[in-house]
Each structure stands twice: as C-alpha cells, then as structure tokens.
Design a protein around this nucleic acid. Structure first.
Lengths: 164, 164
DNA sequence: TGACTAATGGTTATACTATAACATATTCGC
DNA sequence: GCGAATATGTTATAGTATAACCATTAGTCA
C-alpha cells in the first residue's frame, strides 16, 4: 500500500482508491461498524479526487454520477460517520473533505494545500508532531485533536502556472 | 508589551487590550491604512474576548453594546481588513476570529483551543515553525500561509470541569 | 419465523456563515 | 471646495450545516 505523498506526483491513482477502499472495509469490519453502500460511495468519491471536496459538491456528484438524489443531511451523516472512523479529514479553511491515507493509526490532520490546483497532500513528520506535542505540553494543554492547513504552491504549479 | 501566552493564566486583560489597540494603531499608521472607528471597535471587541468570536456574535455585540446596527457585509469587511493587516486570525474549524498578539511579525496562525471554556492561546515555537517549513520544503511546496488548530483541554479546565 | 430493537437513510424546514451588487457617505490629496 | 478613492449602508442571495420527525433496513433473540 502506497497511498501517501503522491498527490503532487504522477501515479496510478486507481490503485490508491482501491487500496483505500479495502483498508476502509477491513477497518470497519474490525470495529464492528457498517460501511454501507452510501458511505462507501461517498468515501469512493472523496478518494477519487486529490482535491478536497465540499459537501454540496458530493451531493451533485451523487446526483449526476450515480443517479442518487440525496438531501444535505444524508451526505452530512455519511461524512460524520467517515470522520468518526477517521477515514476522512475535514479541511476547515475551505469547508471540504479529503481521504485519510492512514486511517488505522495517527489521527492528526496535517495537509499541504495548493492554492492553484487545489490538490492536497498529507504530511507525516515525526519532528512536526513532536513539536506540536511539546508546545502543548509546555502550556499544560492536553491535545484531543489537531489540524494543520498549509496553503501555498505545489511543485507542479510553480512551473506550470495553469495546472488547475 | 506582554500580550502572549496568557489566555490560560489569570492576568489583567485590560492591559492586553490596550496594548494591542496601540500596536494596531501604530501599525496602521506606518502602513498608511485607516483604522476607522468601526474597524477599531471590531478589533476591540475581538481583543476583549479570549475566546474566538463569530461574525454574527460580533454583529450582536455591536448592536447591544454600542447601539450600532450593522448588517453582515459591514462586519465582514471590517474582519477582512483586520485579517489583511494581520491584526486578527481566523479559526477555520469553528468559523471564528481572534486577535493576533504579534501583528508586526510572523504571520503563522498556530493556536491551542480549549473545547471546554473556548479560550484560545497562540503558540510561538521555533521548532514548530521550522518543522512545518521543513516538511513543505521536502515536498517542494512553497508556503503562502498556514493555520494550526490544536483542540483539547487547557490547564484550568483539566481541574475545573465547568470553566466555560 | 416473527416480532422487537437499534441503526440507517429519507424528507422538510431552517439555522448559520459569507458574499454579490449597488447606493451612499466619508476622507484625502490637490 | 472638487474629484477620486476609500469606506460604509442596504438588500438580496449564495453556500454550509443541522434539527426534527418519519420510513426503512439490518441484526437479535424468543
């Protein structure tokens, strides 16, 4: 499985999606929770995109791509489930959702987000996680969850100005 | 001037607010931009709270505390100005705004946010900033802006369960 | 099997957050 | 003062998210 650090490089994303879906199915089975058709479909749509997707974009995609007409609460409930199971992350600055490449461990949501093409890539750095932990500990703060959103230009968009 | 690292400790917050307002006034003068009465009022309201404030909360506060009836665009324009001048930060996860203790340098938005009492405290750690920079550089990513939101329990709320 | 129970999804309405578009007023340089 | 630029007022509406209630499905156990 090689889901990570790929959004900004060319790769066969089909594999990413397949792997992610398998991992998700296994994880849900282990946890005794149900990855229903709807939840699976939403997770699939999110994973097929390297760009974080908004809830209403998902509603449109469900309507057009799968002839499934759903109202906001339906998709938000699916998103809530996927968030709880840590299968996706929420990017607060842009109200959007993206797949988590490592749902089985490490819950931190650390992302590089390209302003030009919209792609997102998850960061995994020991030094970073430890620096955050240290800063919290210094203040006597107990961490429950965290989210780092770094916006800028990805390698591709620095050379290709119109990569969106 | 001692604006920082104080949200989770007792202190005379009146001083914080006064200092912050002076710094803001000086900075705007230097930059040749106008800290109008409205903008100053909004900045003051934000600074008087250790908790990030939502835009509509600010509208209510302007209405009740100062008999100034404003519509959403008015307060959002003030917020946009303050964000541009880096006098405040936006906390994306909760759609709220909080004062920046160091508007003159360092634009990163790194916060500890207490789930219980709602208070926010800005983090300034060299190791943290460098870890983020290193992670970006590793990927060939050029940073424009960033936001770290760490949620959990502040020191006070770990012992006093109802500190909200 | 069948009925009970819990979990999931459907539906309607509405709350909350933010901006577009256009009108009015204020400030600043000349 | 005059004109351009900036700031604010006003109305309407877009975009994001949830409350409340109902229908359906899946799993459990007598």
């Amino acid at each position: 499985m090689e889901n990570s650090n790929l959004a900004f490089s060319s790769h066969n994303h089909h594999h990413c999606v397949n792997d992610a879906m398998k991992v998700a199915a296994n994880l849900c089975a282990e946890r005794g929770v149900r990855l229903t058709p709807l939840r699976k479909q939403v997770l699939g749509l999110i994973w097929q995109s390297h760009k974080p997707l908004g809830a209403y974009t998902l509603i449109d995609m469900l309507a057009t791509e799968s002839t499934r007409q759903v109202a906001p609460p339906t998709v938000y409930r699916a998103l809530d489930f996927l968030l709880e199971q840590r299968l996706i992350h929420r990017i607060g600055a842009i109200n959007a959702y993206i797949g988590c490449p490592h749902p089985d461990h490490h819950h931190s949501s650390h992302f590089l987000l390209c302003d030009q093409c919209g792609r997102a890539e998850e960061i995994h750095t020991q030094a970073l996680s430890q620096a955050i932990k240290a800063a919290a500990t210094n203040t006597g703060f107990v961490i429950q969850r965290q989210s780092l959103e770094v916006f800028g230009l990805c390698p591709l968009c620095q050379t290709e100005p119109d990569n969106a």
